[in-house]
């Protein structure tokens, strides 16, 4: 099966029903995307598919053929939101952070200036360390910048 991940075409041979998460982690060794619950409840496994956020633990890889998949490895490491996460010193244990970054990236891609409510309603990824106040601040920081531009 052919997948388009981070702009590259990749070949995998797995069962059709294998969720994307495990194709990424166990077969393609793209381990930046994390496993937290396996049931679409926590968002640790969030990736972008055609620029929309997707919880990769809950989608069989076969339905994603031909679509543009972006994982945390596909971001430069210094996108506006990544820089803002560093500036606001967001991560604690870090385990949920790839998913948070992907969810925030998707939000800002469709809504350059999200309101507090937009952030609250979209950023549903869990963080047991409680980095929420800083995630919010980091997103708001990027949103403000985009306004000025």
């Amino acid at each position: 099966m052919q997948l388009k991940i981070n702009g590259q075409s990749m070949d995998v041979s797995v069962d059709q029903d294998t969720p994307l998460l495990w194709v990424l982690r166990d077969h393609l060794k793209l381990t930046g995307t994390k496993f937290g619950c396996g049931k679409g409840l926590c968002g640790a496994c969030t990736v972008l598919v055609n620029d929309k956020p997707l919880r990769s633990c809950s989608v069989p890889v076969s339905v994603l053929k031909g679509m543009n998949i972006t994982t945390i490895e596909g971001l430069s490491g210094s996108t506006a939101i990544q820089q803002a996460f560093v500036k606001h010193d967001v991560p604690q244990c870090g385990f949920c952070q790839s998913g948070q970054i992907m969810a925030a990236t998707a939000l800002l891609a469709t809504n350059a200036n999200p309101s507090e409510n937009d952030i609250k309603n979209t950023m549903t990824n869990l963080c047991r360390c409680g980095t929420y106040p800083r995630i919010k601040a980091a997103i708001q920081d990027v949103a403000k910048k985009e306004l000025i531009l």
Partner: peptide, 16 residues
């Protein structure tokens, strides 16, 4: 945080 960059880029290696 000293490894903030690794954490927000998915580079930090955990056990899994």
């Amino acid at each position: 945080t000293i490894d903030a960059q690794q954490k927000i880029s998915g580079e930090l290696k955990y056990t899994g």
